[in-house]
């Protein structure tokens, strides 16, 4: 079904869309930054360091979402031999990797004034570091292997092994004693973050998602150009 996608058709979208996504991203990011850095209240306990959360939490959400999507696409792509899904996965990975690093670094900056340490080897933080390593391995695999069939197999295996880590990250704070606090936002129960702080969090999440989309479109566009240059008429 997806095998006979016409690159020219997708290309006309991916070459024009980044412009509009960029404009939208800048607008949403501006609103998000004003909301989170100026308009939102300080926390009763952490005072202004709560503002780090508006970067940390969306970055962590996006990186987990992207890794899950990469895995799903790679596995389906592997089973049904859909090359296009691998190219989408490849183009998604860099922004996921960057957001993983951002989540780790901002968490560290937040940890120093709050916990009193930059780093702790607790289950949540360590499993998040493992996710960053999996992103690294995944991206390296694309650089190392050039044979198409080989790279598709290797990256699928990496994502299948890596996906086991995702539920561990999510539930590490519930399963074990960790220094990291449990989740504040739950679909089923009331959130333990005050509503005045939820709004900037949502806007920042939207801004980061748009940034991922922008990077994805640019990367995917490059992949399509490569295919075009090779003179192939379909993916």
């Amino acid at each position: 079904m997806f095998k006979y996608f016409e690159p020219n058709k997708i290309f006309s979208i991916t070459s024009k869309a980044p412009k509009y996504v960029l404009i939208l991203f800048v607008i949403v990011l501006t609103i998000g930054l004003v909301e989170s850095l100026v308009l939102s209240p300080e926390d009763y306990k952490q005072s202004h360091s709560v503002r780090i959360m508006y970067v940390h939490v969306p970055a962590a959400w996006i990186t987990l979402g992207i890794f899950s999507s990469i895995t799903l696409l790679s596995v389906i792509g592997y089973i049904f031999k859909i090359k296009n899904f691998f190219l989408i996965s490849k183009s998604l990975a860099p922004s996921g990797f960057i957001f993983c690093i951002i989540a780790l670094v901002t968490g560290s900056i937040w940890g120093k004034p709050t916990w009193g340490t930059w780093w702790a080897w607790d289950a949540r933080i360590t499993s998040m570091l493992i996710l960053a390593l999996f992103y690294g391995i995944y991206l390296l695999a694309w650089r190392i292997y050039h044979d198409k069939d080989q790279v598709f197999k290797v990256t699928s295996i990496i994502t299948i092994i890596g996906i086991i880590n995702v539920p561990i990250i999510k539930y590490s704070v519930d399963w074990w004693n960790t220094l990291h606090q449990p989740a504040s936002i739950n679909i089923l129960s009331k959130s333990s973050i005050h509503s005045s702080m939820l709004f900037p969090l949502a806007i920042m999440t939207a801004a980061f998602a748009l940034f991922s989309l922008l990077i994805f479109l640019m990367k995917y566009n490059t992949e399509l150009i490569k295919i075009k240059n090779k003179g192939l008429d379909r993916l």
Partner: peptide
């Protein structure tokens, strides 16, 4: 000594 933060966030 490390302080542990709970999951509650709210204005003062």
């Amino acid at each position: 000594i490390l302080a542990k933060h709970d999951e509650n966030y709210m204005p003062p």
